[in-house]
């Protein structure tokens, strides 16, 4: 097996063309585990970690552009992410363990397209876009259109994700990421919830965005629950009603980590975390 380390996108495209069956590696924390488990042996691996163009973070026109090969550890260490995108920052800190976060990347988490990918629910609620490039050119699409199903994306052969563009929420927005795993660290989410809420002057919820992880084939958005909460004060009984709606609407499965029933319960109960918002207090991420 050959492993390539292109340093520029210009070097990358001919390599991709010459090795159409190759696997792209942006950290390897999912890919290498999969190769070991399945015994698959791609003829070549193209690693993106030395592509400087994919390793940058910058503010551009009201959004944060995050290179696909930026590591989760770099996200968790970023002050911009911490201050402007707290849900994404909390998700980065909750993903895997320090060694995993040193390797794992934002683009990798995106392309693995697991419903349990920790950075994905925050990127849904922030309305992130995914920049995709190939030898022929670039395109940009909303995250909901990029991820098609578990492990399935709209990436065409020859294409890679180059950046994730995350619009920065307006001032006063509250956002957070809540995760339940089998233990406190280095655990895949059994269920998770990202929230982004813009509050009105009188303290009610204005615009509400919610995205659940690990309770369906992809990250789940429930516009009906968002609409139900919009304009309301997030009192416990309101949240309990919203929780019941969410629990009924999500599409979880039974697996070795948890039953579908438990995941439904969590999908509803995680919303109760927002009760503390009424007092302008933020609960911890757990």
């Amino acid at each position: 097996m050959e492993v390539f380390f292109p340093r520029t996108l210009a070097e990358l495209w001919p390599l991709k063309a010459a090795n159409p069956e190759s696997a792209v590696m942006a950290g390897g924390t999912d890919l290498l585990v999969r190769l070991r488990k399945t015994g698959e042996r791609p003829p070549a691996i193209i690693a993106l970690e030395r592509l400087a163009e994919l390793r940058r973070m910058s503010i551009e026109g009201g959004g944060l552009r995050i290179g696909a090969a930026v590591t989760i550890g770099e996200l968790a260490a970023s002050e911009i992410v911490r201050d402007a995108l707290p849900a994404l920052w909390q998700a980065a800190a909750a993903l895997g363990s320090p060694p995993v976060r040193h390797g794992a990347t934002v683009g990798g988490n995106m392309c693995t397209a697991s419903p349990a990918g920790d950075t994905l629910p925050p990127l849904y609620v922030y309305g992130a876009a995914v920049a995709v490039a190939g030898a022929a050119g670039c395109r940009r699409l909303p995250i909901g259109d990029f991820i098609l199903g578990p492990g399935r994306t709209s990436l065409a052969p020859g294409e890679i994700v180059t950046d994730i563009i995350v619009p920065l929420p307006t001032g006063g927005a509250f956002s957070a990421y809540y995760k339940v795993g089998k233990r406190r660290a280095m655990a895949i989410a059994v269920a998770s919830l990202a929230v982004c809420i813009v509050r009105t002057a009188d303290g009610a919820a204005g615009k509400v965005r919610l995205a659940w992880g690990s309770v369906g084939p992809t990250v789940i958005s429930l516009p009906a629950v968002e609409a139900f909460l919009a304009g309301k004060r997030l009192a416990p009984d309101v949240l309990r009603q919203a929780g019941a709606m969410a629990a009924a609407a999500v599409l979880p499965i039974d697996d070795v980590r948890a039953s579908a029933g438990y995941r439904r319960s969590l999908a509803g109960n995680l919303l109760l975390k927002l009760a503390a918002l009424g007092d302008d207090e933020q609960e911890d991420g757990r």
Binding site: V33, S97, K182, R183, R184, A185, M186, A187, I188, V256, R257
Partner: peptide, 26 residues
């Protein structure tokens, strides 16, 4: 946490992805 899940004798979580022992934070 610990439970080696067996279905008709076949272990379903014979790895540390799904067989959890305590981590430092626990």
């Amino acid at each position: 946490y610990e439970h080696l899940v067996l279905a008709e004798g076949k272990p379903l979580n014979s790895d540390f992805v799904d067989y959890k022992i305590p981590a430092a934070t626990d």
